[in-house]
């Protein structure tokens, strides 16, 4: 398997507190801070992590919806970090994004047909069966009624809107799909349909997915590998089975322990994280998780733990990795 998409030392910062156009910003949000990842063709990489840790920003930089501040994006080994014009158009066809927010990602003034068909128009593609027919096929593919072609987004429920977004992302038959919370707005039976659909499409079209989600059971289900992010950095990365059965980073342990159990009789031992979520404007020194970590020592405050390989399929960035001991 070749590396379909690779990012190296990717950095994305946002200026904050700028008073005027020419004035210096008061600081920077370090949304993505030196992330390296590779996705092979046909593979699914799951990304999980704290709200605000930079998952969506990473996805947007990977798809060129946002320019990288520093680092590289490689597509099939070719550096496309600063792609423009023709090259960018081609890139857009290859990599598509499914968005987190089914509301703001659909233009309320456009019909569903127009929204789903828009990529075809922008890229000037005329499918053999005609654009309308193709759009109706796409609607059917994601479980929407093709008769809804002329309806507007506000006439759909949250879940239905998310399916419109998925149909749109499939219009150009991309090779790589960055799916940012693609099913969180759906009921579980429709989630199951969409997840099965995404897996079928993956097999048929040899698609690669970057699958960003808060639902750890969904991520486990779809991913070959999973990366865990905290405050702009990857803190752990491993094969799916490995990560869920042998988590090593304290943040991963806390995350897994917080998953609600769909069984009222079963109570899981929770690791409650204390302390505030640190600000990405002023991240803590050393290990970024240390302010909330029960294993932190002086070393963690002074030295940043690098992401190191601890076995063939497992990397972790922690001075004291391991599944135990848990905090009281």
């Amino acid at each position: 398997m070749s590396e379909a998409l690779e990012v190296k030392n990717l950095v994305k910062t946002f200026p904050v507190g700028k008073k005027g156009f020419f004035s210096k910003p008061a600081g920077y949000v370090h949304a993505v801070d030196g992330v390296s990842l590779a996705i092979k063709s046909g593979e699914t990489l799951g990304i999980v992590g704290e709200s605000g840790c930079g998952k969506s920003t990473l996805g947007r930089v990977m798809t060129h919806l946002l320019p990288a501040t520093d680092g590289q994006v490689l597509l099939n080994g070719v550096d496309v970090t600063r792609a423009k014009g023709e090259e960018l158009q081609k890139l857009r066809r290859t990599i598509q994004m499914i968005f987190q927010d089914p509301y703001s990602s659909l233009n309320p003034r456009h019909t569903v047909g127009r929204i789903v068909g828009m990529p075809l128009v922008v890229q000037n593609i005329n499918p053999a069966q005609g654009r309308k027919k193709r759009v109706q096929e796409l609607l059917e593919l994601v479980g929407l009624n093709p008769e809804h072609y002329n309806r507007y987004p506000h006439e759909f429920s949250g879940g239905q809107r998310q399916r419109i977004g998925i149909a749109r992302s499939l219009a150009l038959e991309p090779k790589i799909i960055i799916a940012d919370e693609p099913v969180s707005a759906l009921d579980v039976s429709i989630q199951a349909q969409i997840l099965n659909l995404l897996q079928d499409l993956q097999k048929q079209l040899d698609l690669s997915y970057v699958f960003i989600a808060h639902d750890l059971s969904v991520v486990k289900h779809v991913s070959d590998r999973v990366a865990v992010m905290y405050l702009g950095k990857i803190v752990e990365e491993a094969g799916s089975e490995e990560l869920y059965s042998k988590p090593m980073h304290p943040y991963t342990l806390a995350l897994l322990s917080a998953v609600p159990e769909p069984n009222p009789e079963k109570v899981r031992q929770r690791i409650l994280l204390t302390g505030d979520v640190p600000s990405p404007i002023n991240p803590p020194s050393g290990c970024r998780f240390r302010t909330r970590c029960w294993r932190a020592t002086e070393l963690c405050a002074t030295t940043e733990p690098p992401l190191v390989q601890i076995s063939t399929n497992h990397k972790v960035a922690c001075h004291f990795p391991g599944p135990t001991p848990l905090p009281n």
């Binding site: 579980v188 039976s189 989630q191 199951a192 349909q193 997840l195 099965n196 897996q199 750890l216 059971s217 969904v218 486990k220 289900h221 779809v222 991913s223 799916s240 089975e241 869920y244 897994l256 998953v259 159990e261 769909p262 069984n263």
Partner: peptide
Amino acid sequence: AVRSLDSAIREKLATI
């Protein structure tokens, strides 16, 4: 159709 952390990876999910 509910999955939990104990569900197996990549098995087909039950749907309605």
